[in-house]
Design a protein around this nucleic acid. Sequence first.
DNA 1: TTCGCATATGCCGACCATCGGTATATAAAG
DNA 2: CTTTATATACCGATGGTCGGCATATGCGAA
Lengths: 113, 113
Amino acid sequence: MSKSRGLQEPSFLILTSLAHEPQHGYGIITDVERISQGEVRLRAGTLYAALDRLQSEGLIAEDREEIVDGRLRRYYRLTGEGGLRLAEEAARLQRNARTAVTRLRTRQAGGIA
Amino acid sequence: MSKSRGLQEPSFLILTSLAHEPQHGYGIITDVERISQGEVRLRAGTLYAALDRLQSEGLIAEDREEIVDGRLRRYYRLTGEGGLRLAEEAARLQRNARTAVTRLRTRQAGGIA
DNA sequence: TTCGCATATGCCGACCATCGGTATATAAAG
DNA sequence: CTTTATATACCGATGGTCGGCATATGCGAA
């Protein structure tokens, strides 16, 4: 287990991608690009390093392996701990976003606006 | 000007802290701790480095300086560009959080959690 | 038939924001 | 007299991400 500090956006989106159902590495890359509306394109280096790290932290686990067209597909799934963690992080993001929006609305001019 | 990559949580909260009205460095530290409900304690190194960076990116600007009890207070304010950027980031966080929550709700068992 | 693209996993060096500690200084509290 | 709070600032270490590369298969285009 680990000490759980804040998740970066790529890691958050990887967990999100696994929240509905298990996926394999390359599937996560395309899924993350889709759910972020093309804004986040995971690099292979980022993905597989993150997968190893998240697994060693107990947030995800290997689900199964398949071979399709001679290519290996290694599926990962969210663990119970990973689900809790993702829910916590989502709540944090929502709170941060809400605070920012509220403060932007009640803005007071500083010096020169 | 800048290249606008994703903002980390500390930087996001610094901008949020300045969104309502100008603040000085130490005030930002206490404010961020408050709005994050004690979860994020900015280190001095993080804060002043971030302040320099955000200023060089045009997201914040020096507002004024005051001397209180023989101690300097340097106030910063959010620029117009900084406000736009913060609003964009807040929208992204909200979207990411919503996606995660939705997926967690429609969860399909992978193997054993 | 060879080139490029999509699929698929994985390694490795570089970058840089954050972390953690330290330095400096004043004033109030213990 | 030392700790805590206020206040700014530098610096080395950490670590997640970036960007590129390697490897391999199958498919469609030039």
